[in-house]
Design a protein around this nucleic acid. Sequence first.
DNA 1: CCGAAGACCTGCTGGC
DNA 2: TGCCAGCAGGTCTTCG
Length: 243
Amino acid sequence: MPELPEVETISRQLQAKIVGKKLKGKKIIKVRRRAKLLIIDFIDKTSLVFHLKLTGQLIYNSRPSRFTRQVFYFNGGSNLVFNDMRKFGWFKFIKRTEDLEKKFGPEALKISFKDFQSRLTKRPKSKIKLLLMDQKFIAGIGNIYSDEILFCSGVRPARLAASLTEKEIKAVFDNIAKVLQAAIKARGSSEQSYLDALGKKGDYVKYHQVYRRTGLPCKKCRAPIKRIKLAGRSAHYCPKCQK
DNA sequence: CCGAAGACCTGCTGGC
DNA sequence: TGCCAGCAGGTCTTCG
């Protein structure tokens, strides 16, 4: 589930619901996202940090299910339910988030073209899809959105960074923001288990051009979508639209 | 330095 | 219907 658009959706929804409430007697002053982390900041400068990994859910005012790992209760009776079928996700209370946040590269929605380009030239032999998913290179993009960004850019996922023309680098850069913003607007992609903080599915799957569409006709040219393996992950692309 | 492979978990789907 | 292989939004660690 949760890449940048999904975590951003949850973050915005929770920000509207729980700021000003108290958890364990401590007042919540902000809910925010860094990379794929969801961070709840308290007035005493401590934070509660979540990583939802593949199947984590954070749902406001929900009921526990068989997959519930933890329920957080706020003063006044409302709650926040943390579900995670595959148990990869985690949460922890920490004193300062700085050290944790330092481990990530620039935010995908904040990086400048200049920075993006210079980072690419420093990793000439890396495959472009793996670079987009490398959280130290650029933070927030995962398997779904790297495939979608590269489709929109006309670039195959296994291309080496050094092989991209200036025009292609610009296209990839532009499509990072374009695809992620559109996905946030649709409240993310619900492939299987993802739900937003209000317990609703995200609508972006219907806009997917290639992700998990192996063998289906490309929405632009009708050529069958291909799937390959890169670093153990599936990569989907249109052999005709992407060079 | 880099990349590939396996580990961590559970559930679902498709083929025989 | 049953069983088994393969797949799934993400990091981590280990090994070559």
